[in-house]
Amino acid sequence: MRWLGLVLLGPALWAVVFSLVYGLHGTLCATASGPEDLGRAARLALVGAWLLGIAAFLPVFALIPERSGQAANLPRIGLWIGLVATLFTLFPVTVTTSC
C-alpha cells in the first residue's frame, strides 16, 4: 500500500504544480486589464512558481531510494515522470505571450 502511494508521488506532484501554475496564470490574466502581456512582475511570479515546483522534487528524490529492477524501482521512475512532465509542460512560462 505504502509502495503504491510512493509510486503515485511523483506524478501527483506534477499534477499539483501544474494546477497551481495554471491556476496562478488564470488568476493573473483574469485580473489583468489589457490583452497581451502581463508585465515583468507577473512573469517572474509564474517562472518562480515553476522553478519552485521543480525544486520541490529534489527533497523527494532523496526520500525515495533507487532500487534495482524496473518494477521495484517504480516509485523512483514515477518521480522522473513527474519531473520531466513538470519541465516539459510548464516551460512555456518562460517563452510564450502570457495573456
Binding site: 490574466c29 512532465a85 510548464l90 516551460f91 512555456p92 512560462v93 510564450t96 502570457s98
Partner: peptide, 11 residues
C-alpha cells in the same frame, strides 16, 4: 491565452 494553450499543447 496563448501561455495556457502552450501548457496544454505541451502536455
Amino acid at each position: 491565452p496563448h501561455m495556457a494553450l502552450a501548457f496544454f499543447s505541451a502536455a
